[in-house]
Amino acid sequence: MTTRELQEVKKALKQALEEKQRLSQQLEQERNKPPQIVEKVVEKVVDRTDYTKIQRLEQDIQRLQQEKAQLEQKASKSTEYENELKRLKQELNEKTDELLALTQEQLRAKDSRMIYENVSYLTRDVGKWMNKLRLDIHNRRHVEGDSEVHRTIESCIKVLEETISELRSWVEVKQYQNEKGGAIDAEYAIVIESE
């Protein structure tokens, strides 16, 4: 039940109580009315009490009492619903906070794993190409002193040095060792160099 419905119920209850009070007063007035005696030649006492009106008023009072009980019951249920709604909202907020914390931890773990895999691929590929170049240079000794080969290797060295420099500016790696001396995991932190 909404706050507005609760206010309407309370308003209806107040009106019903006022109507009951007014009807009770009216009934009491009718009951306390002194009977009027008319004296005539014929001696006859006339009872002017309107019994149908009294009966109708008593029925109205009973109806209003029933409505009052129903309205009080609805107001009680409304309070229970509001308390339950507050409890459910609090529980939802707690679960949302737990989910956000879990999601952030999962994202951190995924990002760390992705960086680890990419660094592994880079290391593997650089090692593979270095072995291939070493083998090519060893097998083809006739390229020694070739200025084109020399410029190409110097260009490669320059690119690799720039890559290493850039990698150092991006991250610092802290490695944790397990009891047997092997690496457990690596933690990456962005480092901003001041110019």
Rank of each mutant, 00 (worst) to 15 (best):
E43R: 03
T123Q: 05
R31Y: 10
V159P: 03
N83T: 13
Q25A: 12
Q21V: 14
E172H: 06
L122D: 02
K77H: 05
V41M: 12
D47E: 14
C156S: 11
R168K: 13
D111Q: 10
S147N: 07
N93L: 12
L160Q: 09
T163Q: 08
I54Y: 01
E94T: 15
E94D: 15
E39Y: 09
W170V: 12
Q26W: 01
R87G: 09
S24C: 14
V171C: 00
A109E: 15
L17W: 09
K68S: 11
D185R: 09
E98Q: 11
L99C: 07
D97V: 14
T49Q: 02
E117T: 12
L122I: 10
A183Y: 01
K14A: 15
T123L: 04
R63C: 02
R87L: 10
E39Q: 11
Q29A: 10
E67L: 09
P34N: 10
R141N: 07
E161D: 14
E162T: 09
K20T: 15
Q73E: 08
L6K: 05
E161P: 07
Q175W: 02
V45M: 07
Q26N: 13
K40L: 10
E82T: 13
R134F: 03
Q70E: 09
D185N: 09
K89E: 13
E80S: 08
E195Y: 06
L92Q: 10
D136S: 06
Y81W: 03
L57V: 06
Q7G: 03
K14M: 10
Y51D: 04
K44Q: 08
W170N: 04
K40P: 02
L23E: 02
V149I: 11
I137Q: 00
I190L: 06
Y51N: 01
A12Q: 08
V171W: 00
D136M: 04
L135W: 08
R134H: 03
N178A: 12
K40G: 12
H138F: 06
V143Q: 02
T103N: 09
T96W: 01
L71K: 01
R151G: 08
K20D: 04
V126L: 12
L57M: 07
R22L: 13
E80K: 06
H142M: 07
L135N: 13
L57P: 00
Q21G: 12
A69K: 04
Q73R: 06
G145W: 01
R31H: 12
A189F: 02
